[in-house]
Design a protein around this nucleic acid. Structure first.
Length: 565
RNA sequence: CGGGCUGUGGCGCAGUCUGGUAGCGCGCUCCGUUCGGGUCGGAGAGGUCGCCAGUUCAAAUCUGGCCAGCCCGACCA
């Protein structure tokens, strides 16, 4: 019996002043969730229903690939985390119990599960294993934001795969791709599986599932030819430069007093920004000073740079720049540089370029990479909209929220936690692991982000809190109330989840609330429709109105419901 | 962690500059009215002005400290 008169669905006319993201505003306005503190959210009944619908889709698809659900504690011994080397991560919440024992609140559960696997798995016959769980994860986020998109405490589905070898891991990974593709299709979202950075943790491969939306924290490079990559790792063919200067037989110094920016040099010399060589003096961990150069109209991608270097790097300090280049920032360049030079691929084959002269107020014109300086060629620039993807189509860049990720962990946890097995020859082998996450709350939020209008949410039917909102305009004792009471039972009888708005309120308020909550179908029973022998139906997405005969209305509603996106 | 902003009935805000004992809209309660797109009218309830200290005859208002929240950036294995 889900009667709105007794349900807890506190809708509001106005959103909290500090809510900016559409999902944040609508989660609150539609009565789905409330904030308790920074990055701490309470799911109210209707919001929790949506969350659970997402969970159920995930369960079904993971069960379908042979994964089995478990439950693990949030509170864990710090010892495990010290062993895996994750205890020092700032985001890990740490605490002590009354005896002073150190504990952590888990942000993921690799240590926990690997610990058990290490104890229980002995033989190659015990592998592979696919396990998953839903659990509250805790993260001391530096900056919670955008409603439930980034919180300090949230429920995450994590799967972990345990295999005999890399080939086995590849199979588990492929199984997860299969399951995840189904999950996100069923969730009704627009989504992309993108290549992603394997991060500092190493790893053998990773993809992220991204849902484009305005409030997204990530950027994805997409093309019509099916290219999809996180901008952090995206590669593309650059756009050509218009008006490149004529090549010179050798670099020639020119006076460029005070021109320390790309823009200033470009204007002073009358050349396009793309004709400049932008130089970044660096200090590479364990290697010392280096210089990375890219095209003047390009931007450096720090993730790609880190991957190209195979080490972390920081911008060189001003003293280090003077010491190594004989000039201040703005006038340094790769020609006759005394340090290791890395040059972005986009510079390869160009000539007639302009570079810093490595002396104050001087640039060099007519520079040709390869001829005038030697460099290691690398791909470290950020792709730009309009670039050409590897499949030959034009790149566009969209903000997106990461709703899932899959990651080939390799031996990252099995080694420190001692997860081994004996192979057919009786030799001890490490267990190959993968981990695979999904944030149900982010799917809920992304659905709202992607599907809303000025009236409220327009849920995909698979995650809507209810399939149908039944609105009666009749008061206690009126016929419209009696008819709606019957229809409510009939709708439930045909298997629909129904929210029944039986409140004694004006029609306008009930309609407005129904559109705010955004169930795929709204059925209205009032005196007018009864006299016509009909029930009025509104399809929330697009707000299309129809009528169906009162007789058989439940079946008609169900038939219509299953045709909706 | 750096930068910016905000804390005043449940929500959204004004009042703070220029100190004089708190106001508006929505919501809520009651009465009447209306009844298929947030009806209309009337009467009410509800506030330690984020917290602590200081200045002052007097502090929402001035000063100092603290706390919380939001936005941008850094960060987000």
């Amino acid at each position: 019996m889900t009667r709105l008169s007794r349900y807890f669905l506190p809708t509001t006319r106005e959103a909290p002043a500090d809510a900016e993201a559409a999902s944040h505003r609508l989660l609150v306005r539609a009565g789905l969730a409330r904030q308790l503190g920074a990055g701490m959210w309470t799911w109210l009944p209707a919001g929790w229903r949506a969350h659970r619908k997402v969970e159920q889709i995930i369960r079904e698809e993971l069960d379908a690939i042979g994964a089995a659900e478990v439950l693990m504690p949030v509170l864990q011994p710090a010892e495990l985390w010290k062993r895996s080397g994750r205890y020092d991560i700032d985001e890990v919440f740490k605490l002590r119990d009354r005896r002073g024992a150190e504990l952590v609140l888990a942000m993921t559960h690799e240590e926990n599960l690997t610990w058990h696997i290490a104890r229980e798995v002995r033989s190659y016959r015990d592998l592979p294993k696919l396990l998953y769980h839903f659990q509250t994860k805790e993260r001391d986020e530096p900056r919670p934001r955008a409603g439930v998109l980034r919180t300090r405490e949230f429920i995450m589905k994590d799967s972990y795969s345990f295999d005999r070898d890399l080939e086995g891991l590849d199979r588990s990974y492929e199984l997860h791709i299969e399951a995840y593709d189904h999950i996100f299709d069923r969730s009704g979202l627009e989504w992309y599986r993108v290549e992603s950075d394997v991060g500092m943790m190493g790893g053998l491969g990773a993809h992220e599932y991204m849902a484009p939306c305005a409030a997204g924290e990530n950027e994805v490079a997409l093309s019509e030819a099916g290219y999809a990559a996180n901008v952090e790792v995206a590669s593309a063919t650059p756009q050509p430069i218009d008006g490149l200067p004529e090549p010179l037989p050798e670099p020639r110094p020119v006076e460029t007093p005070g021109a320390t920016t790309i823009d200033a040099v470009s204007r002073m010399l009358g050349v396009p920004a793309g004709a400049l060589i932008k130089a970044f003096p660096l200090f590479v961990d364990g290697r010392g000073p280096a210089l990375v150069v890219i095209r003047g109209d390009h931007r450096l991608n720090e993730v790609k740079l880190r991957n190209a270097l195979g080490a972390a790097a920081r911008p060189a300090e001003p003293e280090e720049v003077r010491e190594n280049f004989g000039a201040e920032g703005g006038f340094i360049g790769p020609v006759r540089a005394q340090v290791e030079v890395l040059a972005d691929e986009a510079l390869r084959g160009l000539s007639g370029l302009v570079a810093g002269g490595n002396e104050p107020d001087v640039h060099l014109v007519g520079v040709e990479p390869g001829r005038d300086f030697k460099a290691t060629w690398v791909d470290v620039r950020r792709v730009e909209p309009g670039d050409t993807c590897p499949n030959g189509a034009t790149i566009r860049i969209e903000p997106a929220i990461e709703v899932g990720n899959i990651f080939k962990l390799g031996l990252r946890y099995s080694e420190p936690l001692g997860a081994h097995y004996l192979d057919e020859e009786g030799r001890e082998q490490p267990i190959w692991m993968g981990s695979y996450g999904i944030g149900p709350a982010r799917i809920v939020a992304a659905a709202i982000e992607q599907f809303h209008d000025e009236h409220g949410i327009a849920w995909p039917r698979s995650v809507a809190p209810f399939d149908v909102e039944l609105v009666t305009l009749g008061r206690q004792g009126e016929e419209a109330r009696r008819v709606a009471d019957v229809l409510y039972e009939q709708l439930r009888g045909v298997g629909l989840d129904v929210l029944y708005d039986d409140r004694e309120m004006s029609a306008g308020e009930k309609f407005a609330d129904a559109e705010l909550l955004g169930c795929p179908l709204r059925l209205t029973v009032g005196r007018r429709s009864i006299e016509a022998g009909e029930v009025d139906v509104q399809i929330r997405r697009g707000r299309e109105k129809r009528s169906v005969p009162l007789d058989g209305a439940a079946e008609a509603a169900a038939d219509l419901f299953y045709t909706l996106p």
